[in-house]
Structure formats: C-alpha cells, structure tokens
C-alpha cells in the first residue's frame, strides 16, 4: 500500500503545483479559471484516494460529486465575470484589471 500511497500523493502534488504555477503566471482570465479547476482536480484526487484507503468509498463519492457541482458553479460565475470584463475592456488581459490598486 505504501507505494500506492506515495504514487497518489506525488501525482496529486504534481497536479497541485502545475495548477498553482499556472495561477501565478497566466495573464489571461480564462486561463486562471482553468488553473483553479486544475487545482480542484488535485483535491479530488486526494479525496478519491482517501475514500479508497478508508474503505468508505460511498462517502468519498458523495463528497466528490458535491465538489464538482460547486466547482462548476464557481467556474460558470467566473466565466460570466470574464465575459462581462471582455465586454467592458475588449480583451481578457488580467494585467489590465488593475484599477483598484494601492
């Protein structure tokens, strides 16, 4: 079991880092939303593994489905905001989104 655990954790960590890196470096709003999704996937992976190792796959599955639903709603809202920003500014560049500063 140990190597499986290690593999899972390494995989989750890699996805997490990838997502975080994308978060920091992207200056496109849609990319940012995708990055958030990627990070959520890492979390889901951990939950899957948790369910598996506990034996309580049912609880774990319910958790994951709830998470996906919430995540979708968040993504929709984020995209909606991005569209509204696009309508206002003409592009999706995050660097232009700095009117609120100081």
């Amino acid at each position: 079991m140990n190597s499986l655990t290690t593999a899972f954790f390494i995989a989750a960590a890699m996805i997490l880092f990838a997502g975080c890196y994308m978060l920091v470096r992207s200056h496109n709003m849609i990319r940012l939303v995708i990055a958030v999704e990627v990070v959520m996937k890492a979390v889901t992976l951990v939950l899957v593994f948790a369910g598996y190792s506990n034996g309580n796959t049912a609880l774990s599955q319910s958790f994951i489905i709830t998470i996906i639903v919430a995540e979708v709603v968040v993504a929709v809202v984020a995209t909606g905001i991005a569209i509204a920003v696009y309508r206002n500014n003409g592009d999706l560049d995050l660097r232009k989104l700095n009117k609120l500063n100081g």
């Binding site: 990070v39 959520m40 593994f49 948790a50 609880l59 009117k99």
Partner: peptide, 29 residues
C-alpha cells in the same frame, strides 16, 4: 471596478476552498 473586485475575490476564494478541501481530504484519509 465591481467586476475586477469580484474576479480577484473569486480566484483567491477558489484557491482557499481548494486548500480547505485538501486539508479535509487528508483528515478524512
């Protein structure tokens, strides 16, 4: 300005939720 604020809040709140979930997941584990 509203959209800008909402977006920034959204992104960081999503990350925060991700972390909270991560922590919960590990505790569940």
């Amino acid at each position: 300005v509203g959209l800008e604020g909402a977006f920034k809040y959204l992104v960081m709140s999503a990350i925060a939720s991700a972390f909270i979930l991560l922590g919960s997941g590990l505790l569940f584990l």
